[in-house]
C-alpha cells in the first residue's frame, strides 16, 4: 500500500533476515523467530511490527499464538514497477554472468 514503508522495512539487515527465516519456516511465533537472533524479544517484536506495517509480514491468531507469514505481494509489486518494466532480459544476462563468475 505504501512503497516508502516497504523500502524502509527492507533497508535493515535484521528485518531482511527475519523475512528469510519466514521463507524457510512460514507461520512462526515471535518466540520461534527469536531463537536464531541474538537480540531481545522486544527488539525482534519491533522489527516485526515494522514489517507488518509494510505488509511484508501477515499475521493470524491461532488460539493464543500469533503466527507470522511472509507476504511477498508488495515485493512483487516493486518487482513489477521497478524491474519488469526495465530491461529484464539484459539484467538476467548480467545476473547469470555474475553467478557463473562467482561460482554460486
Amino acid at each position: 500500500m505504501n512503497t516508502d514503508r516497504v523500502f524502509k522495512a527492507l533497508a535493515n539487515p535484521t528485518r531482511r533476515r527475519l523475512l528469510d527465516s519466514l521463507r524457510a519456516r512460514n507461520g512462526e511465533t515471535l518466540g520461534g523467530l527469536c531463537e536464531n537472533l541474538d537480540m531481545t524479544r522486544q527488539a525482534v517484536a519491533q522489527h516485526l511490527r515494522c514489517l507488518e506495517d509494510a505488509n511484508l509480514v501477515a499475521t493470524i491468531w491461532q488460539g493464543r499464538e500469533k503466527l507470522h507469514y511472509l507476504n511477498p505481494v508488495p515485493i512483487h509489486e516493486i518487482y513489477d514497477r521497478w524491474i519488469a518494466k526495465y530491461e529484464r532480459q539484459q539484467l538476467q544476462a548480467l545476473s547469470d554472468i555474475k553467478q557463473l563468475a562467482e561460482g554460486d
Binding site: G27, A58, I60, Q62, Y69, N71, V73
Partner: peptide, 10 residues
C-alpha cells in the same frame, strides 16, 4: 490444529 502454510494479504 494444523497451521496454514500460506497467508497472503493485499
Amino acid at each position: 490444529m494444523e497451521k496454514p502454510q500460506f497467508v497472503y494479504v493485499v
